[in-house]
Amino acid sequence: MGSFFQIEEMDVVYRDMQVLWDISLRIEAQEIVSLVGSNGAGKSTIVNAISGLVPLIKGTILLEDEPIDGLKPYQIVEKGVVQVPEGRKLFPTMSVSDTLELAAYKGEAKRRKTQNLERIYNLFPILSARKKQVVGTLSGGEQQMLSIARSLMILPRLLMLDEPSLGLAPLIVEEIFNTIREINEIGTTIFLIEQNVYLSLELSDRGYVLSNGRVILEGPSQELSSNEHVKRAYLGV
């Protein structure tokens, strides 16, 4: 019996260039696992490979011991592996409530839409206040919250957040990270991709450090934050 979620020896070529080499990582159920590394290290490509947007040339991705690589993006979403993408990728001309309802348009998510919607409006009161507002008019922080909320409407089992702190004020970032913790506490497994190494190691149970397309370090987050290399390269101490 393997882990809840596993990547084994994955290589990825993107736009005719190999960007990931021999990536192996695992995520246990209920965990928060962070993936840190500098800009351009290949973090987003890992998430996009999991979501089925980028093909693998070697290796496999397993969810509860079943391969999910090779599935179409919508099938991967149906399995409960959902991404909150970098840059949010929202629908600017739609209203907040339409966005949330559209995400829950089929399956179990549809059946539990009403109660889920209520839960999400409790988690993000600001979105409840802006229900009828058009997404393009929301602030950056509100858009990030909506992007997370949109993914939660699908009832994810593994929620992958790609750079949720990007471009946001420190206070908003703290709020978002608190929410991520809350989402985890109610049972969702979290895979957190961040440039903000300090914050994400503080939040997560375990972490992986990615550099130039390879995993160079892994371990419990506390150990990583006290690692000399991590301190020097990412924490600036």
């Binding site: 979501s51 993006p73 990728k89 929202l90 629908f91 001309t93 739609m94 559209l102 348009y105």
Partner: peptide, 24 residues
Amino acid sequence: SNLGKAIRACADNREGALLIGIRV
């Protein structure tokens, strides 16, 4: 309609639509 909203979502952001499970 749901299909109509899905069409608008694809027009707004194709990748965003893919990532919420719309069969683009």
